[in-house]
Simulated scan of single mutants.
Amino acid sequence: MSAPWILGLTGGIGSGKSAVAQHFMDLGIHVADADQAARWVVEPGQPALAQIAAHFGPELLQADGQLDRAALRQQIFQDPAERQWLEALLHPLINQALVRDLAGAQSSYAILVSPLLIEAGQRRLTQRLLVVDAPEQLQLQRALLRDQVSEQQIRAILKTQASREERLRHADDVLTNDRDLHWLQAEVERLHLFYLTLRGGQP
């Protein structure tokens, strides 16, 4: 069997890309998740964690040696230069982990899901791009309900992500997620049938 082509899946915080990715997985499609890769590269024993502790200070480590993500998030959102330092360290490691994950895919196409697909240079790993889109107010409502963080923090995350216009400009396909889960899953199934007809991500 030839190597599967790669679909990029992205969307802003609270857009519903995780629900979309999960349904593609339910349909038997291999999904490589950049958020999971980002967690893995800072596990205890990984070189990146030692570099983060050396740079930001050991207080960013919890008693069990795990990274204190909330404390790190607070530091990098207060200081753009620190965020850039962290991204320069982590993005190449995350991309390497994603490439390894996708290399093991057995489905007819595979998906790379990432909130920073465009910003982190991961777009070049894909042949086609699906953007999950939602009105900003709806994104905010969903993220507030899910993450239990302040609106200020969610707006700060939105600022670090590509603008809605930028994402849509890069999109080959757009799934507007402003209805219920049943409708969303039906749209995923429609796209899945279409993607099965493609070769190399192209009609």
Rank of each mutant, 00 (worst) to 15 (best):
R73K: 11
R73G: 15
R73H: 08
Q74P: 06
Q74G: 13
Q74V: 06
Q75V: 15
I76D: 00
I76N: 00
F77A: 05
F77H: 11
F77C: 07
Q78L: 09
D79E: 14
D79W: 12
D79V: 12
P80M: 00
P80K: 00
A81C: 12
A81F: 10
R83E: 05
Q84C: 08
W85P: 11
W85D: 09
H91S: 11
I94S: 00
I94E: 00
N95H: 12
N95R: 15
Q96D: 14
A97Y: 08
L98M: 15
V99L: 15
R100D: 15
R100G: 12
A105E: 06
Q106I: 05
Q106K: 13
S107H: 02
Y109R: 02
A110I: 05
I111Q: 04
V113Y: 02
V113D: 05
L116C: 08
L117Q: 00
L117H: 01
L117S: 00
E119C: 04
E119A: 03
A120Q: 01
G121I: 03
Q122F: 10
R123A: 11
R123H: 09
R123M: 09
R124P: 05
R124V: 09
R124M: 08
L125C: 07
L125P: 03
L125M: 10
T126H: 01
T126L: 02
Q127D: 12
R128P: 02
R128W: 06
L129A: 01
L130T: 13
V131G: 08
V131Q: 07
V132K: 01
P135H: 04
P135W: 04
E136M: 14
L138R: 13
Q139I: 07
